[in-house]
Design a binder for these strands. Structure first.
Lengths: 155, 155
DNA sequence: TCCCATATCTTGAACTGCTCCAGATTCCTC
DNA sequence: GAGGAATCTGGAGCAGTTCAAGATATGGGA
């Protein structure tokens, strides 16, 4: 799991343009933040973006995230009962390890192969394009704090 | 994929008691509805329950659903960007086929084995207890209507 | 280097799905 | 039956996200 290389970070304006998006401070900053802090949720990204830029509206953050996802520069993942999270590692069909307690997300390389890495026995007429695998459990920190089970159906 | 047998349906009061729940019309009705109409969301179940019983409060429906889930008689599944859905098929580690467009859900038998049916290469210190597999695609009806791609990041 | 069309951002309100609260009612156990 | 716990009702409240309309900034062409 390689982190973003310096080149990737420098290329951000070019990548935004290549994706047909105008380059604005908010967009460049948010894309960089998604790369350096993958699996952050919208609110964390908004807070971090404000730390760098001074002020960015919540709506601009959501707009930017939508635009990045639509352009294929970011991916949105939604663990059940947790706010949406964003990552820039796309196209490699990896999966996720999610903590039932705190919602922390980690990447896990695909155990099987390229997308869709699994195929159901019976597709029932569906045109399947993706098999999303989520491993649920407890992260080391929550284990260390003695959390032993899922808190309840919606935490 | 066997549907609920008549015996299962008759046994509902006994099953509720066995799970430590008192037997009420709303609970019995909702559990029956979950069995006969798996993957319904709370609102649909509420509507159906009202159709049978005359009136049931929204709160009663949510309470009952929570109680059933907590008691292990039902399972709550939350496809990204769709309201929670409930099913009574539990403990057999099956997976789901979800339509990106309309949110329809179908059961799919586990391709691999018993839970957790897959194991990540690196658990990163997590205590993994479940591998949830969701197959994303388009259902036959949406395909028939010419829907060709996911509508957008949140429908 | 300036201009214009329009993509993007701001502000403020609203929406969905769900939860919580307090009091009234119902049901299981003895 | 009686009593107390569990459950139901109705309404308010919340987080995360989206909608709407006007202001502002960006990028290609003159």
């Amino acid at each position: 799991m390689a982190g973003p290389s310096p080149e990737d970070r420098e290329d951000i304006p070019a990548q935004l343009r290549a994706a047909g998006l105008r380059v604005t401070a908010a967009r460049a900053t948010i894309l960089d933040l998604i790369r350096t802090h993958p699996h952050s949720d919208a609110e964390a990204l908004a807070r971090a973006a404000r730390g760098r830029l001074g002020s960015v509206s919540t709506q601009a953050v959501y707009d930017t995230l939508h635009a990045l996802v639509r352009a294929g520069l970011a991916r949105r993942i939604v663990p059940a009962d947790h706010p949406a999270r964003f990552e820039a590692r796309i196209g490699d069909n990896h999966h996720h390890l999610v903590c039932r307690n705190c919602g922390r997300v980690e990447d896990v390389d695909c155990v099987v192969g390229a997308a869709p890495c699994l195929t159901p026995d019976a597709t029932r007429g569906y045109a399947v394009d993706e098999a999303e695998v989520t491993f649920w459990g407890l992260c080391p920190e929550c284990l260390g704090q003695g959390v032993t089970d899922k808190p309840d159906i919606s935490g």
